[in-house]
Design a protein around this nucleic acid. Structure first.
Lengths: 336, 336
DNA sequence: CTGAAAGCGCTAACAC
DNA sequence: GTGTTAGCGCTTTCAG
């Protein structure tokens, strides 16, 4: 019942080919014809069937995106960046997750084989990089949003986890800190290792002395882990005058514990946290954050993929890097 | 270059029709033939082209989903529920947002005209309900995820904002509270009005006296608004012994301010907050929350839509309701 | 039980 | 400049 290109052709008194040509702006057409066809299209409210166009052209104008989970707090920002970009370019976004494990991946594989999309954006689920690499080898345009520093053999976008952590270290040192407490995230995440290395290396280089291993406690990105780490520390009586938390929620937990203990932030203890949820990070006026350019990462990744789909070669091998930025909040503490 | 149904047919020595039949389990086929075709399919690793199937059958096996924004903290849970459900049923999910305003909506309209998907799941962007209703009238199966209580004229899924707030009121009353401070969210959200009504009505009915208007302060779902509301209150010297925050972030802010002021929770002041971000809500051991069944809402909505796509009639008119649940945390306070 | 043939709605040579 | 003719890969009558 919907109107097709044939209807438009009939109403305009031309062939389907001609309609197709004005639709796609191909070939030299008589200006009058173009105008007439355009009018009919307008009048009829005709819109080409995406499926038919896809079948005929061999591409779908859809990009697929595979993410480990949609409930990770930072994923929304990335997604928004991606959606905005692909939408602007007239593409659709088909979303997949690996929530059901192996089974999810099997189904995802089917969709790939079914040619449901032209290119893939992926925040690689743990232990899936080989599979993705294979897809890439098989000719599927792929761009990785690299959240854990596995430099793949295909285009990717990443941020400066290492550099951001180094900035945090330098900031704390600049405020006069001498002994930091580091609350990490789950060590299985590459970004955690990067942040840890970036911090400890810079602290060792620019600080009074390297960070002793016992000043690094393993957290899990929750409010509570930050809270507990600080409380434990205070209970143990081991001195510290700064906290570097691997995300904002644990940083908030740390802030909390510090204040409850009657310590002032940043006068007594300065706190810096990586910013996963912008809303959470911005929520405390005393929390200095290392801001991750999540939305920009999504945009850049989508742009990179669309460029490939548009025919451009897969660029150079180097990953696209969008740097973090340090946002200092709270009154500053003068170095003693 | 990819293998098609024709390849399978050739290798199996049958017609495309037969292959199609074993693929779709239609018609009576010779068991031996079925087995043979199956083997060839297996060997060749054949997977039907989604686009071709869609064109031939007139449906895409894809559901569209339109959300106002992907950065809202609670949207991830809903999305995950939706994705899990549609994935399990062999459907794809095409994601759209209205981030770019009117322009987004225009593009979205194109996709719907282009028949890119068979049915629509929607968290209605403000002032878009009429448009969605029209789409529904035009025959597009639609299910609304109703986050602000606009009872539409088509299938929808919602939670008990009113009831959850009533539970919060009863809980606070049970712990002996007599004068609450209410920190709302932006009043333009329907859910805010519902939560406010549910709370105040129950308080008026079961409490010592109705909530006076000046005990209700308008917030914006941030940590800071909760923080400020409490501080202001304390500064004003107006007494209160309970806080009902419209989301978890503002509840955390309130907790924060209370503790900084040396008050104990829940002994001096009990706090209850609606739970937007499960991680945030669970993050404080003293925060009692009204848990929103976000993932279940996503699942239910998807199921409802798939049922329609599967031919079932649009059910009765009543919205599907998934209730909130109250999770009490922290030591209890005995009524005086 | 199985196959031939005619589309689904559109694009892309190849002619005129 | 514009129309004709084949498909894209699959489903679906309609015959046998």
């Amino acid at each position: 019942m919907p109107i097709t290109i044939a209807d438009v052709a009939a109403h305009a008194g031309v062939s389907k080919t001609t309609v197709s040509r004005v639709l796609n702006g191909k070939g030299e057409l008589n200006a009058a014809t173009i105008a007439r066809v355009r009018r009919v299209i307008e009048e009829l409210g005709y819109v080409p069937s995406a499926g038919a166009v896809g079948l005929a052209r061999g591409r779908t104008q859809v990009v697929g995106m595979l993410v480990p989970s949609l409930t990770w707090p930072w994923i929304g920002e990335v997604l928004q960046g991606v959606v905005d970009t692909v939408e602007t370019r007239g593409f659709g976004l088909l979303l997949f997750t690996c929530n059901q494990g192996e089974e999810s991946l099997r189904r995802f594989g089917q969709q790939v084989s079914a040619k449901s999309f032209d290119g893939l954006l992926v925040v690689a689920p743990e232990g899936t990089l080989d599979y993705i690499t294979e897809l890439h080898h098989q000719g599927l345009p792929v761009v990785l949003i690299d959240d854990r520093g596995h430099q793949p053999r295909f285009p990717s976008v990443e941020t400066t986890n290492r550099g951001g952590a180094a900035d945090a270290a330098r900031h704390l040192l600049a405020t006069g800190a001498t002994r930091p407490l580091v609350v990490t995230g789950p060590p299985r995440f590459g970004c955690v290792q990067e942040r840890l290395d970036g911090f400890t290396e810079t602290w060792a280089a620019d600080g009074p002395s390297p960070v002793p291993p016992q000043d690094v406690v393993e957290g899990d990105f929750t409010f509570e882990c930050g809270l507990r780490a600080v409380r434990q520390r205070l209970a143990d009586g081991i001195p510290f005058d700064a906290v570097f938390a691997h995300n904002d929620l644990s940083a908030l937990g740390a802030l909390h514990a510090l204040r409850q203990a009657g310590l002032r932030v940043p006068e007594d203890v300065a706190v810096v946290g990586f910013d996963d949820i912008p809303e959470a990070g911005h929520s405390d006026p005393e929390l200095t954050t290392v801001h991750q350019p999540l939305r920009e990462i999504g945009e850049a990744a989508a742009e990179l993929l669309l460029a490939q789909l548009g025919g451009r070669p897969p660029e150079s091998g180097a990953p696209v890097v969008i740097p973090t930025t340090l946002t200092v909040r709270g009154s500053t503490r003068a170095p003693d």
